[in-house]
Simulated assay, not measured.
Amino acid sequence: MQEEQAVNFQPMYGEHQPWFARLFALYLLIVIIVLLQRGVRFIWVLLKLRKRSEQSESAFSELSSRIASSKQLAGLTVLVSILNLSWWIADILLGLETAKAPPNLGYILPEIGYVLTAFNLGIIVSVAALGGSMWAQFALNRRRNAFLNQK
């Protein structure tokens, strides 16, 4: 009689995420919430300006400054993504330096995959923020030109 042997799968890498990676994920979540809130507010104000007959240049300049701050937030997100990428790769390489065994590709490649996934998410959020800002600036310029042509 043969005894049954259970085969267990144990991955070669751990699910460890450093504290700065968790902080980066929280940062991305906050940026997404802020950008969504700003987008909804922008559309709301733009619709109110369309219905209102008395449009002022100060309203347009306030909206333009909000758009500029969203562009700056997109640039900051790119820089924070690069910082997270470099910090996480440095953490992986320092772990390899202190390891007693020779470097194992089974460990390095999944870890680099986690790093690149986080970096790509940051870049995607940055591109979405910058694209939304560019669209908002275009819509605001159209509304401003229509306002100036009415005068």
Rank of each mutant, 00 (worst) to 15 (best):
Q2P: 13
Q2H: 09
E4H: 11
Q5R: 07
Q5C: 12
A6P: 04
N8F: 15
N8A: 13
F9H: 13
Q10M: 04
G14M: 12
G14V: 12
G14N: 08
E15I: 12
H16L: 06
H16Q: 10
H16T: 00
Q17P: 00
P18Q: 03
P18R: 01
P18L: 06
A21C: 08
A21G: 02
A25Y: 08
L26W: 15
Y27D: 05
L29T: 15
I30K: 06
I32L: 14
I33H: 12
V34D: 12
L36G: 14
Q37E: 02
R38N: 15
G39R: 01
G39Y: 04
I43A: 09
W44F: 11
W44V: 08
W44M: 07
V45N: 11
L47V: 07
K48Q: 14
K48S: 12
L49D: 02
R50G: 03
K51H: 12
R52Y: 05
R52G: 11
E54V: 02
E54G: 03
Q55R: 15
S58A: 11
S58E: 15
S61E: 08
S64I: 01
S64C: 07
S65P: 01
A68M: 05
S69K: 06
S69Y: 13
S69L: 14
L73A: 14
A74R: 07
A74M: 06
L79K: 05
V80P: 06
V80E: 03
S81Y: 08
N84L: 02
S86A: 10
S86E: 01
W87R: 04
W87P: 00
W88A: 10
I89L: 15
A90P: 00
L94S: 09
L94T: 01
G95N: 15
G95Y: 03
G95C: 03
G95T: 05
G95I: 03
L96H: 02
E97I: 02
E97C: 00
T98K: 13
A99H: 10
K100R: 05
Y107C: 00
I108W: 05
L109T: 14
P110V: 04
E111G: 04
G113F: 08
G113Y: 13
L116W: 01
F119N: 04
L121A: 11
L121P: 00
G122C: 08
G122K: 11
I124N: 01
V125E: 06
A128N: 07
A129M: 09
G131Q: 05
G131V: 07
G132A: 03
S133F: 04
W135R: 04
W135A: 06
W135P: 00
A136G: 05
A139S: 10
N141P: 01
R143S: 15
R143Q: 11
R144K: 13
N145S: 14
N145R: 12
N145L: 11
A146P: 02
F147Q: 07
L148M: 08
L148A: 10
L148R: 11
Q150P: 01
K151F: 03
